[in-house]
Simulated scan of single mutants.
Amino acid sequence: MSDYEMIRSPKTDQGIVIKDEWPGYDLDLFTYPEHYHGDLENIYIPHGVIMDRTECLARLVVDDTDDNYMVALCVLKGGYKFCSDLVECIKSVSRNTPKHMTVRVEFIRLKSYLNDQSSEDIQIIGPEDLSVITGKV
């Protein structure tokens, strides 16, 4: 059984499922920054797999969108890299279709801490008025 078969869930629509007991890929299969040496034990999801799935998601967005203009809402800070990769994939995919898309990105931050204590209230920090994205795809 290959590593891919160990993590693939062929009987469901869940895509790739990583089982708790799966040890991951051996580090010798990858190159990674020197400053991580000694800190990593294995690789669970290689960057190429993440980028492939991001491109698949971009294709779905382009196929499901009737408009040629899109506003992407990025939740900082954790979502920045994924949002950036997804927007670039959407632009790239749409260049190869009859409906070339223009994508604008708006940024917000969510704050749920007050004086180092978690609160149930989530504060949205970003554009003064989120109406700039109301009705946008």
Score class of each variant (00 low, 15 high):
residue 2 S to L: 03
residue 4 Y to F: 14
residue 4 Y to G: 00
residue 5 E to H: 12
residue 7 I to H: 00
residue 10 P to C: 08
residue 10 P to N: 01
residue 15 G to S: 06
residue 16 I to Q: 01
residue 16 I to H: 04
residue 17 V to G: 02
residue 17 V to S: 02
residue 18 I to K: 00
residue 18 I to M: 05
residue 20 D to N: 13
residue 20 D to Q: 12
residue 20 D to A: 15
residue 21 E to D: 15
residue 21 E to R: 07
residue 21 E to G: 05
residue 27 L to S: 04
residue 27 L to G: 03
residue 28 D to C: 12
residue 29 L to S: 11
residue 29 L to D: 11
residue 29 L to Y: 13
residue 29 L to C: 12
residue 31 T to Y: 04
residue 32 Y to C: 09
residue 32 Y to N: 10
residue 33 P to M: 08
residue 33 P to N: 09
residue 34 E to A: 13
residue 35 H to W: 09
residue 36 Y to L: 15
residue 37 H to S: 13
residue 38 G to D: 07
residue 41 E to I: 14
residue 41 E to Q: 13
residue 42 N to R: 11
residue 43 I to P: 06
residue 46 P to R: 03
residue 48 G to C: 09
residue 49 V to L: 15
residue 50 I to V: 15
residue 52 D to I: 02
residue 53 R to Q: 12
residue 55 E to P: 04
residue 55 E to Q: 08
residue 55 E to T: 10
residue 56 C to D: 15
residue 57 L to Q: 06
residue 57 L to W: 01
residue 57 L to R: 02
residue 58 A to S: 02
residue 58 A to I: 06
residue 60 L to C: 06
residue 61 V to C: 03
residue 61 V to T: 00
residue 61 V to W: 01
residue 62 V to K: 03
residue 62 V to S: 09
residue 62 V to L: 06
residue 63 D to R: 12
residue 63 D to C: 08
residue 63 D to Y: 11
residue 68 N to K: 10
residue 70 M to E: 03
residue 70 M to K: 05
residue 71 V to W: 00
residue 71 V to R: 12
residue 72 A to F: 13
residue 73 L to N: 05
residue 73 L to A: 09
residue 75 V to N: 05
residue 77 K to V: 10
residue 77 K to M: 05
residue 78 G to Y: 02
residue 80 Y to I: 12
residue 85 D to R: 05
residue 86 L to N: 03
residue 88 E to A: 15
residue 90 I to F: 09
residue 91 K to V: 01
residue 92 S to H: 09
residue 92 S to W: 00
residue 93 V to N: 04
residue 96 N to S: 12
residue 97 T to D: 07
residue 97 T to I: 08
residue 98 P to T: 14
residue 98 P to L: 13
residue 98 P to V: 10
residue 98 P to D: 14
residue 99 K to C: 13
residue 101 M to Q: 09
residue 103 V to W: 05
residue 103 V to D: 06
residue 103 V to T: 08
residue 107 F to C: 07
residue 109 R to I: 00
residue 111 K to T: 09
residue 112 S to T: 09
residue 118 S to D: 08
residue 118 S to F: 07
residue 123 Q to F: 11
residue 123 Q to H: 13
residue 125 I to R: 13
residue 126 G to M: 09
residue 127 P to I: 13
residue 129 D to N: 15
residue 132 V to A: 10
residue 132 V to R: 11
residue 133 I to Y: 04
residue 133 I to V: 15
residue 134 T to E: 11
residue 134 T to K: 15
residue 135 G to L: 03
residue 136 K to N: 07
residue 137 V to Y: 07
